[in-house]
Design a protein around this nucleic acid. Structure first.
Length: 431
RNA sequence: GAUUUUGUAGCUCAACGGUAGAGCAAUGGGCUGUUAACCCGGAGGUUGAAGGUUCAACUCCUUCCAAAAUCGCCA
């Protein structure tokens, strides 16, 4: 017999059931005690009337501490005032493990206190809702690529060299070989995968030792990176917009209850439908000029600039063809203007900023080699990568999507620190 | 790395340079339908640390430590 969860109770109205969970909250009114039970699937109000239960159970229902683990027994019935909600006309209460002085109350707390108690904070309804949405987004990401003929291709976490320079890498000793570095992107390996399997994606944790202290940065974050042989920049943008629409609609279909717990404005998500606006860097600069923003042509877009541009649209906007100087060495130049890179950033609405960065890759051996030298990167470390241009090079494209930024945007959060069970930030690596 | 702001009870916050206080949590009591329940009682403090100014410092000054927000860099 399978165990009954709070989320299943609509199937058990009128039945006597036993549930296990934790005491989320309790209230009382003299001869009636209310215990709010939490089991990970939902919350359930359990009612203990003095006349209906033994003296001992009534006493326990008054004294049991917040977050004690308990087993409750009673009859499932519909809430007299809230149709569609269920409560338990309880008769039994067994304390499995008593808890006292649980630190997180039902009042407000500051971020430092909550992060110090992250291992307990994840029990609260808001965090549960966020983590369930995160899990649904992860599933949507996997489903999207798996259903479209992509093959999951796992790159190494320990890498021998930099993808884009060594200054932002976490270094660790590696036996007799000197140092290894925690990966900051699986992209170069994904390109090797695309030459083998056609369409691949990588999905896993990545690490950046950037001293960034903003609402959008973690030092350890999850990134999904599709890479497709024979895709050009336009194909890449087609893939990105179909992907984002799929993720958002999946959450709207399956996790509406959790979005409501978070108080998310659903209409802002419902408008995330193809096609997304596509503007060039030049057009983006014009928008900034029209808004009297001081901006020097040739610079990368800053966080404030991104917010101004994305505020013009009700869905993500794709900005393409950036000055090649501000973009990575592996990006292909625009044949119609070699000063531009065939890059695309996708900016989320509502000021959430860049959630996707991608490009068509340089597929010429000679051009790639000269870029590596221009960037003062060690050629020998990239010989395997150059090999991909030596043995049947083809046009190919891909992008990286930051999972935590995407979760933060879809959930409407102030900070990405709530989007991952145990965030790692510049000044925090505990608990 | 830069700028700004903030450190007071377990938590969230008050207190003009002049007796450190409230709400919540915990604790004791009251209430037969409560919804962050409510009502009453008691308890809870080396005001981040070290110096300094002053008759008197939570309050003003210096240094240090910690946190938050924003920027730069990125996803």
């Amino acid at each position: 017999m399978s165990k009954i969860q709070i989320s299943d109770l609509s199937q058990h109205v009128g039945q006597v059931v036993t549930l296990k969970g934790w005491v989320y909250n309790k209230r009382s009114s003299g001869k009636v005690h209310f215990i709010i039970l939490r089991d990970g699937s939902g919350l359930l109000q359990c009612i203990y009337f003095k006349g209906n239960v033994t003296e001992e159970v009534f006493e326990v229902s008054d004294k049991v501490g917040q977050e004690s683990s308990v087993e409750v027994t009673g009859t499932v019935k519909e809430h007299p005032k809230h149709p569609g909600e269920f409560e338990l006309d309880a008769t039994g209460l067994v304390v499995l493990s008593e808890a006292t002085d649980f630190p997180i109350s039902h009042k407000e707390h500051g971020p430092e206190f909550l992060l110090d108690n992250r291992h307990l904070w994840v029990r609260t309804p808001r965090q549960v809702a966020i983590l369930r949405i995160r899990a649904r987004i992860v599933k949507a990401i996997r489903d999207f690529f798996d259903e479209r003929g992509f093959t999951l291709f796992d790159p190494p976490i320990l890498t021998p060299a930099a993808c884009e320079g060594t200054s932002t890498l976490f270094e660790t000793p590696y036996f007799d070989l000197g140092s290894a570095y925690l990966t900051q992107s699986g992209q170069l390996y994904a390109e090797a995968g695309a030459m083998a399997l056609g369409k691949v994606y990588t999905f896993g944790p990545t690490f950046r030792a950037e001293k960034s202290k903003t609402r959008r940065h973690l030092t350890e974050f999850w990134m999904v990176e599709p890479e497709v042989a024979f895709n050009d920049l336009n194909d890449n943008m087609d893939l990105a917009e179909e992907f984002l629409e799929y993720i958002v609609q999946s959450v709207l279909n399956d996790r509406m209850d959790d979005l409501k717990v978070l108080g998310r404005d659903i209409s802002k998500l419902e408008s995330v439908k193809r096609p997304f606006p596509r503007i060039s860097y030049d057009e983006a600069v014009k928008i900034l000029e029209e808004n009297n923003v001081e901006f020097r042509y040739g610079n990368d877009l800053g966080a404030t600039d991104e917010t101004i541009i994305s505020s013009k649209y009700d869905r993500p906007v794709m900005v393409h063809r950036y000055p090649s100087e501000v973009k990575a060495f592996y990006m292909k130049r625009d044949p119609e203007n070699p000063n531009l890179a065939l890059a695309v950033d996708v900016l989320a609405p509502e000021g959430y900023g860049e959630i996707i960065g991608g490009s068509q890759r340089e597929d010429s051996y000679d051009l790639l080699l000269s870029r590596i030298k221009e960037h003062n990167l060690p050629v020998e470390a990239f010989e395997w990568y150059l090999d991909l241009r030596k043995y049947g090079s083809v046009p190919h494209s891909g992008f990286g999507l930051g999972l935590e930024r995407t979760v933060g945007w879809i959930c409407g959060l102030e900070h990405v620190r709530e989007t991952i069970p145990f965030p790692r930030m510049i000044y925090r690596n505990t608990p």
